[in-house]
Design a protein around this nucleic acid. Structure first.
Lengths: 167, 167
DNA sequence: TTTTACTTTCAATAATTATTGAAAGTTTAG
DNA sequence: CTAAACTTTCAATAATTATTGAAAGTAAAA
């Protein structure tokens, strides 16, 4: 397979996989494009390669910057902005873990806590409390693992994960 | 807070949280409803409680069964079908892990493997191969953890997770 | 200051995804 | 067998989400 062909295939595929996990297709493609680009890209570069509008590029690049996985970069002699993606994949993994924790896990923990105090001692009430408590336990455990992963360095992560899997 | 109020709030909240992670709102609500119900529910029960159509109930219950987290149950003397959700939260967690692994992680690994053999020894080619290799490494590691978790019993999971977090 | 080169915003529109509900299909009872 | 009680399907429609593109905003250059 040729390099350019492989890159395009990667970008396309990443986009369609993303939709399976509820991620905007274009956002995934922009990220994939920046990830495999050897040089910083401008909004125009992205527009051309992905055949999308200026507004769309702006929105999605902004979202990626919000996720902390893309950064602005200034090129000497150029007035416009360029963008690059974090290339260190473990760093990328940690950054995504951090954001998902904040956006997805923490709100769940908050809600579960709010629901805890129920004034009901019936059998049904007890069962409901049990379900809530169990959900809390799993969620908190997942949260703690993410927390730890985010703070860890690559070596710790790999060795722990590997240890876990081997045992 | 009263029990019924809390249950409804839980069902509602679960639905809106779900949309943040790309899960169909109704599907999440149906699951939440079955999870906190002390008895099996019929399609009609679900229709009434969530105020949705028969077709919608059928589609979403089917999807939940597909995910392996809801089961059909037959009630003596009743002709129609009833549904119950897996109540063991660790079992639920494992089942979801299993399905996500199959639906989301494995396709990624497949694509990354397909892209590996590129005929290009330029600097750019090497960099692209490096990105692919790194993506493979992270994905495979995550896959292995899920694999192990799925096969583990609750005690193993908890103790390992806890150990991991404490260290 | 004015012009130029850009970025951002957002109402309109397109594309996608979810939902309805009635008709068709299936199974059990009589 | 036929009728009744149920489940499933799916075309039509509603709701949601993504995208466009032109206008407004901003900042550097002249």
């Amino acid at each position: 397979m040729e390099l350019q062909e492989a890159k395009l295939k990667y970008i396309q595929t990443w986009g369609s996989l993303a939709t399976n996990w509820g991620v905007n297709k274009t956002m995934a493609q922009v990220h994939a494009l920046l990830l495999v680009s050897t040089k910083p890209l401008s909004a125009e570069d992205i527009m051309e390669t992905l055949q999308i509008s200026r507004g769309n590029v702006n929105m999605n690049v902004r979202a990626l910057i919000d996720w902390g996985i893309v950064q602005k970069e200034f090129v000497v002699g150029e007035r416009k902005e360029f963008f690059i993606a974090i290339k260190d994949i473990w760093e990328l993994f940690k950054q995504i873990a951090k954001e998902r924790k904040k956006r997805e896990i923490e709100p769940v923990i908050k809600v579960l806590n709010e629901l805890q105090d129920i004034n009901d001692d019936s059998e049904e009430g007890k069962e409901f409390k049990k379900v809530l408590a169990d959900l809390s336990k799993v969620t908190t455990t997942v949260n703690n693992i993410l927390e730890k992963s985010i703070r860890a360095d690559e070596h710790w992560l790999l060795s722990n994960f590997t240890k876990m899997v081997k045992k």
